[in-house]
Nucleic acid binder design. Structure first.
Lengths: 158, 158
DNA sequence: GGCCAAAGCTTCGCGTGCTAACTATCCGCT
DNA sequence: AGCGGATAGTTAGCACGCGAAGCTTTGGCC
């Protein structure tokens, strides 16, 4: 009847464990799907983004993938090596490198359905509509609270 | 009022987004806290787990961290190099390596507050008890479904 | 006893992902 | 014109994280 700290902690542990599991597993599955086409998860993500935009600068791509510029450089190096994309220096701003998929890259992107999180989708669809709605609501609220917590401690890097 | 596929997709997207956000953020926070003590995120995670159990085999640690054995080997290599843990071959089963924190490792673990759990914990505690219980229940169910999906497709690797 | 599959770890090679330091370019300001 | 800060990418070094291949040990089974 009174709030028991132990139960709260157990819930916290279970929730974190579930989140880590779900995230890790989703990445693993994406990677596996990509592997069947001879590439890696991030490469598929990049090609899919490029498919939607036609051409992007490296920093624009990085922003959309939540990756730092040095990470993007390496990723693009390997994709260029494998003939999936081409680098082309911009005329207007010579600092900028524009990225465009090769025909091979476009073909691969087209061949891979948006499946990114297919297994997640199926698992989520297998929940009842009520559960799914509840999960959406609570998880959204939780993310918001975490965001608040983090903002209120931005001096974290002390 | 009837179940609309579009809503399902929206829910799926929101849930995935929230999970990715929560996971990424928890890692970032852990990493930041770890950095202040001169170590890395996974190292702190491992020390905290060891702190709770006293001693674990490499595979037990790997299971709790959702990491493969080859990953754990490397992690433990670096931690041992830095004097945080010790490897000790088990007597009962000579295949097993038991891991124990050094006094330095214990000190670091003790010096670091409950890490990312803390921010999550506060956010979770700020939810109502009902929401928290619901979240635990649904997330657990979801993880189970994902597990089933994955098992039923173990031929995924074509 | 001898064989053989499974379990626990390690090694190797690769692809991320980050920070720090560096180059080239651009742009605002004087 | 030219200085100086901001921006775009690259490079180097490190730590994960994984799969594949290999080693030793264990345990079941004939």
């Amino acid at each position: 009847m009174s709030p028991e700290p132990r139960n709260v902690q157990t819930d916290v542990d279970r929730i974190l464990e579930a989140i880590v599991y779900l995230y890790t597993e989703s990445r693993r599955v994406t990677k596996e799907l990509a592997r069947q086409h001879g590439l890696t998860g991030p490469q598929v993500t990049a090609l899919k983004i490029l498919e939607g935009f036609g051409t992007l600068s490296l920093s624009e791509l990085g922003a959309r993938m939540s990756a730092k510029s040095s990470t993007v450089t390496g990723l693009v190096d390997r994709m260029e090596r494998d003939g999936l994309v081409r680098r082309r220096r911009s005329r207007e701003d010579r600092r900028v490198i524009r990225l465009e998929p090769t025909s091979a890259g476009q073909a691969v992107a087209a061949a891979i359905p948006v499946t990114a999180m297919e297994i997640f989708g199926e698992a989520l669809r297998s929940l009842s509509g009520e559960d799914r709605a509840e999960l959406t609501r609570i998880l959204g609220k939780l993310a918001e609270r975490v965001r608040e917590q983090i903002e209120s401690r931005e001096g974290l890097g002390g």
